[in-house]
Simulated scan of single mutants.
Amino acid sequence: MKTAHDLVTAAKSRIQEISVTEAEQAIQQADILIDLREPDEYAAGHLQGAVNIPRGLLEFKMSGSPELSARNLDIVVYCKTSGRAALAANTLHEMGYLKVKSIAGGFDAWVQNGNNIVTLALPAFE
């Protein structure tokens, strides 16, 4: 029986994983940057320009959004530590997307590298 770790390891052997340093340029060139974390994780802090599509909704969002249907889109994905992103990148390849990159170490590595993040400002109710 395979574990989640086994599945992530297998996915990482089939995808293009890039370092945080490489990610900066890849993000600038990307058509879409996808944050695969849950909405509360995204709200607490995310990469500038990232669109939140939780991992559990990815296939449905990609299939159901005409603007995301082109298989030659340049896509960069990330999650907290890169496990969900590896699985997502592998799935996107299986769906026919040709240019998918996953950020090694995910959001945590991005922050540890000293890169800026964006947080959602909540309205003040006074």
Rank of each mutant, 00 (worst) to 15 (best):
D74Y: 10
E126S: 14
H5W: 00
D74C: 00
H46P: 02
R14M: 14
V118T: 10
V20K: 04
K80A: 15
D74L: 09
A43M: 11
V100K: 00
A85R: 04
G83Q: 02
G64L: 10
K80L: 14
S82K: 04
N115G: 00
R14K: 15
E41L: 06
E41Y: 04
N115P: 03
Q48M: 12
D108S: 13
F125L: 12
I18S: 01
W110Q: 01
K2H: 08
N72E: 10
G105S: 03
L92V: 06
L58F: 07
Q28P: 06
E59P: 02
Y42M: 07
I117C: 04
C79H: 03
G56M: 02
L122G: 14
F125D: 10
I53F: 07
N52C: 15
G49N: 06
A88Q: 03
Y78F: 15
G45H: 05
A121E: 14
G45T: 04
L73C: 10
L36Y: 02
N90D: 15
K80W: 12
D6S: 04
A70Y: 11
L120N: 13
A104V: 08
E126F: 12
G106A: 04
D35M: 06
Y42E: 04
E24R: 08
A109T: 02
M1G: 13
K12F: 05
K12I: 04
P123N: 13
A10V: 09
D35S: 07
I103N: 00
Q25N: 12
I75F: 09
V118Y: 01
T119K: 15
P54Q: 09
L120E: 15
D40M: 14
V100I: 08
A109E: 03
V20W: 02
M95S: 03
S69Q: 14
G114V: 06
G64T: 10
S65R: 14
D6L: 00
Q28G: 10
N90V: 08
E94C: 10
E67G: 14
L122Y: 12
P123E: 15
D108M: 12
E17G: 09
F60Q: 14
A4T: 14
L87D: 02
V51S: 15
P123L: 12
A124S: 13
S19L: 08
D40K: 13
M62I: 11
T91W: 00
W110T: 03
A89V: 05
V8H: 02
P39A: 07
I103D: 00
S65D: 15
P123K: 13
L36C: 08
G96N: 09
D74K: 15
A109H: 02
M62D: 01
K61G: 07
E59V: 06
N113Y: 09
N115S: 01
I117L: 09
L87Y: 01
A26K: 07
K101S: 09
A30F: 09
L57R: 11
R55E: 04
V77G: 03
S82N: 10
E24V: 14
K99N: 15
V111L: 07
V77F: 08
D35K: 03
R37H: 05
I15V: 08
T3V: 06
S63D: 13
A121Q: 12
T91Q: 12
V8T: 00
V76F: 05
V20N: 02
N115I: 02
A86C: 03
L87E: 07
A86M: 04
V20D: 05
T9W: 05
